[in-house]
Computed example of a mutant assay.
Amino acid sequence: MDAQPLTDARALAARFDHHLRLERRSSPHTARAYVATAHRLLEFLGVHRGEVATPAALLTLPAVDLRAFLAQRRGEGLGPSAAAREMSAVRAFLKFAAEQQGAPPALPRVQAPKRPRTLPRPASPEDAVALAEETGALAHQPWIAARDTALLLLLYGSGLRISEALALAASAHPLGSTVRVTGKRGKTRVVPVLPMVATAVADYVAQCPWPLDKQEPLFRGARGGPLSADVVRRAVAAARRTLGLDDKLTPHALRHSFATHLLAGGADLRTLQELLGHASLSSTQIYTAVDAAHLLDVYRHAHPRA
């Protein structure tokens, strides 16, 4: 008898996995991470409350229990950014649990841990991808989730300005290993496309409910018109807050992260200038300063005499 409620809650977590992968079209990495968090939460509640967790109990989960769960995870070595993602997964699971039981979601108010204030720096590759996926996870419709994730991965993966990405015509699909974009002053350039980006864009196109005529914009708004950059910025801001990331991690900052990571990986300035579409090499040279600052920061933290 005692095992039955636990089985029900485990079954709910299993349906959560199906929901993330097939309905929300989350990436396999995100689905695995979110479902693992759901199981950790159920295990924690069983110990913390002295009774097995049931789906009904998830509807009235008090904030104090979530704070205790977060405290335990932090005690296990979870950093601020990872802890914020953990709470994002918990909220998504509790919302799903409520929907499955026909109840309105009543999520406890628990603030995600904030990162310590530091000087602005490029997003790590992990944070850039997490931001893209979390922006999609917060969307209200699966096709919009796929759209937002694909768009942000394109900004980071190819170093595009948001205006350049939103100006892409549907004729650009399917994306190959490169895509031609039009930048400032009508200057065109060819930029590389990562396989994961091409896959994400194809997933969005497959789900988009609006006809994508070749001369129309590739990325569409909720009502079928051109997608607004402000809509994207607001969605990114919400995901950024959920993950506890730096306020300066905007869609445009993904382009800067792309440039800095390429330079750190050995790309020369002339190549970077072409990829970014800078008219002058002096515009590209700012990334040498950013990269030097990052290296100095690493040195100061790693050297025992620093």
Rank of each mutant, 00 (worst) to 15 (best):
A264Q: 14
G136A: 09
L269G: 04
S280Q: 14
T188M: 12
A123L: 15
Q215F: 02
D148F: 00
G50S: 11
A167Y: 02
V35N: 04
P192F: 11
A97Y: 07
L59H: 07
L45P: 04
A200M: 10
R161I: 09
A279Y: 08
V47Q: 13
T250K: 06
Y34N: 08
L249N: 00
A150S: 10
D291K: 03
R255Q: 08
G183C: 09
G157Y: 02
A132T: 03
K114N: 06
S81T: 14
A89F: 08
E216M: 12
I286A: 06
L42E: 01
Q141F: 02
A169T: 14
G244E: 03
A71H: 11
H29P: 03
T135N: 05
L70H: 05
D297A: 15
E216D: 14
L212Y: 07
R40N: 12
L66F: 09
R180W: 10
A89E: 04
A198P: 05
R300L: 13
Q111F: 03
R220M: 13
T271V: 11
E99I: 06
L227W: 00
L218P: 01
L12V: 09
G102R: 08
D127Y: 01
S282N: 12
T60D: 14
W210P: 03
T178E: 14
V181G: 02
I162A: 00
D246E: 14
L295F: 13
R109S: 13
G157L: 06
F258C: 08
Q72K: 08
H48I: 01
S282V: 13
V290A: 07
T288F: 07
A92L: 12
A267V: 13
L45V: 12
Q141R: 15
L22W: 12
R109E: 15
A172L: 05
L22H: 14
A14D: 15
Y299W: 13
D8C: 08
L151E: 01
A13H: 07
T182L: 14
T260L: 05
